[in-house]
Amino acid sequence: MKQPQAYSHLYGLMAEFETPEALLHAAERARQEGYRKLDAYSPFPIEELGDVVHAHSRWVALIVLCGGIVGLVGAFAMQYWIAAVDYPIDVGGRPLASWPAFFPVSFELTILFASLAAVLGMLALNGLPMPYHPAFNVPRFARASQDRFFLLIEARDKFFDYAKTKSFLESLNAYEVNDVTP
């Protein structure tokens, strides 16, 4: 197997497409060609695209579950400790650990911690905030957030070869193929 060539002045090649269908087709073909270090950009979520580029992460759901459990256990433990241990108030001999009364706050804090985990976990997994990314060096990439669809093959992919990859992307009926500087 050939070693990947070093392209110090190139982050990758980016092809622009006009429809989501064209991008889907291109991403599928690129996977078939063996490219793995690729990313697809679209102005709205395309479910099939995630399948094509194998973007599957169970982490978000797991992080949310953990957040919820921390919130629930933490809230219950806090209330129990405050009401029964640290600051007991005897009201006519009623039980100090009056657990049914602790449910509303436990419920709210479960939701709060799970939601915080959902947002912060998603941002952390996506590497956001990210002040700089090479994709933005292509001027036309501004339309990735509006009406165009982009496929990026990174230069560090082991099948990447400037001339071959470029002609491959052009053969996919791309509107334009651009070099992405790092």
Binding site: I46, H56, V60, A114
Partner: peptide, 28 residues
């Protein structure tokens, strides 16, 4: 926007996180 670029990897997690938030906000 924190550097949002509409990557397929990002959208996938984003979508999941957004739906989970909706599922949490409903009982809330």
């Amino acid at each position: 926007a924190m550097g949002w670029r509409g990557s397929a990897y990002h959208w996938q997690r984003y979508h999941k996180s957004y739906f989970l938030l909706a599922a949490l906000a409903t009982p809330l």
